[in-house]
Design a protein around this nucleic acid. Structure first.
Length: 479
RNA sequence: GCUUCUUUAGCUCAGUCGGUUAGAGCAUUUGACUGUUAAUCAAAGGGUCCCUGGUUCGAGCCCAGGAAGGAGCGCCA
């Protein structure tokens, strides 16, 4: 007999037919009712058995988290909590779970803190919250590929191991096969990386952008979607040492095209999740709501999770320049009352407190800030006519902060060479990147989306460690 | 890396002014009940009070050092 998944059973219940279902016990009540979950949906299937028809020894093994194969007839439920239920004729215990062992785990049938769940990342998949989060994570990944594919983008696999350390995006993890205790040395005592696996020093990538640009200048519009690594000692709820990034790159696009693409893209993801993940989203929406209720009034979100997604999907993002942002901040109440901890002055970078003010107090919607001073942005961003600013953009989301960073790229070789000098970047290391500016160089633009930050936004989870199955953070790579 | 808070039963927490035998809810076990939905009712078991040292007649509580975790900041996506 074919096994059916609970999602299929609940969507199209074939009342009266005999079926088989396999899954894990969530609850066993009154020696009669099994709540079975198989991960296909957040919902459980209620299985009903007549305990007089089964051996005591078998019933004893139906404990929380045990794996069962149940065969029986699908009938309309007599209870009020569900429309259909399985009338069980045959029980096979596939995997037992001793209650004393379960007690020590997150499968213990009660509410748990996210911190406790994080310590058991191998088991937290079994919970409703993480089931919902990771089903949505999958859906967003799929939506991203669908969005770009439907627009004629090509998915480019950029390398994970890279030899250039010029991106300037952060500290890198070194990759080496040399004996750390006894590496080959040069005459001056430094490590001789010529003898390393690649014959040079290499690192885990911090961004696929530079390679994506090469592809965009031939295939037109491309994107990368892969893991990236930062060896920064960042201890926050928004940073991971290993995270996934989406980086589209489009030939012939300028900064405005880039903003249009970003906005359409982020709206698409929100709409997709609302349409395709309604059940999981509803669960997380309720979870987020009760979470908000326990916070002091001032820290509460005015909108529920689904309302926040709807808001992003249906309202235009506010677009302002860095110069305008500075002026708005300097005229703001907290500035006049000296509530900001950091200075607001043209030429210094915006701090988290400034970004939060703009997004959460001034505009109350996603904000795109453009045309930052060149001094604190990357070397590859295109110099504006004023000579002071570059065609950069940051997309700021409520509660998350910077979710997207992007720019129009510098396509003029002479300007780019000047920037390399100014940023102390050795031309010979980036010869392959610079060379594209010699052969039919054109304006182009792209951005990077922090995938996990997007998942935080659509799931309402407030710690980035709870939206990736096995988080990598300083001092923690347990699983 | 910096600031700050937390650490007591399997989990979430309370623990008064430093004073006798450290508590609650949930979870677990046992019994009762049996169309339940966070089942209900009754009972039982369960403790390195994070670690080390100190002050004191006496420390879960005070002091010093350390460890782990959270939140915020910086860096960024």
């Amino acid at each position: 007999m074919a096994r059916l998944r609970i999602k299929e059973i609940l969507e199209q219940p074939a009342i009266g037919t005999e079926i088989n279902v396999k899954g894990w016990v969530r609850a066993f009540r009154s020696n009669r009712f099994i709540q079975l979950s198989d991960g296909s949906t957040i919902h459980t299937l209620q299985a009903v058995l007549d305990f007089e028809q089964f051996e005591e020894a078998v019933l004893k093994k139906i404990t929380t988290a045990a794996a069962l194969s149940l065969t029986g007839t699908l009938i309309e439920s007599q209870g009020s909590g569900q429309t259909v239920e399985l009338q069980v004729a045959k029980i096979e215990v596939l995997g037992e779970a001793a209650p004393d062992d379960i007690q020590r785990t997150v499968m213990q049938p009660k509410k748990h803190s996210l911190e406790f769940l994080r310590e058991q990342a191998h088991l937290r998949f079994r919970t409703n919250t993480f089931g919902a989060v990771f089903r949505i994570r999958h859906a967003v990944a799929y939506a991203i590929h669908k969005f770009f594919n439907d627009k004629g983008f090509y998915y480019i696999h950029t390398p994970i191991i890279t030899g250039s350390d010029a991106e300037g995006a952060g500290e890198m993890f070194r990759v080496s096969t040399l004996d750390p205790k006894n590496p080959p040395l040069n005459e001056d005592g430094s490590v001789n990386f010529n003898e390393d696996f690649f014959g040079k020093q290499v690192n885990l990538t911090v961004s696929g952008q530079l390679e994506a640009e090469l592809a965009a200048l031939a295939l037109g519009q491309v994107y990368t979607f892969g893991p990236t690594f930062r060896a920064e000692n960042s201890n926050t709820s928004r940073h991971l040492a290993e995270f996934w990034m989406v980086e589209p790159e489009v030939a012939f696009n300028d900064l405005n095209d880039n903003m249009d693409l970003t906005e359409e893209f982020l709206k698409y993801i929100c709409s997709y999740v609302m349409q395709q993940c309604a059940d999981d989203l509803k669960f997380l929406d309720d979870r987020d709501f009760s979470d908000q209720q326990s916070k002091p009034q001032a820290e509460r979100n005015e909108l529920r999770l689904t309302e926040r997604l709807q808001f992003v999907a249906n309202n235009p993002f506010k677009r302002i320049t860095y110069t305008e942002a500075i002026s708005i901040l300097q005229n703001s109440t907290p500035y006049k009352k000296k509530k900001f901890k950091y200075e607001v002055e043209w030429g210094t970078d915006l701090q988290s407190e400034h970004e939060r003010y703009l997004v959460e107090k001034e505009f109350k919607c996603p904000v795109i800030i453009t045309d930052y001073p060149a001094s604190f942005k990357a070397f590859y961003m295109r110099q504006n006519e004023d000579g002071k600013t570059v065609a950069a953009m940051d997309v700021l989301f409520p509660g998350i902060g910077e979710i997207v960073g992007g720019s129009q790229r510098e396509e003029r070789l002479d300007v780019l060479l000047e920037k390399c000098k100014a940023f102390n970047i050795h031309e010979e290391e980036l010869w392959w990147y610079l060379e594209t500016r010699k052969f039919g160089s054109v304006p182009h633009a792209g951005f990077g989306l922090g995938f996990e930050r997007m998942i935080m936004f659509v799931t309402g989870m407030s710690n980035i460690r709870d939206v990736i199955p096995f988080p990598r953070t300083p001092q923690n790579a347990e699983f």
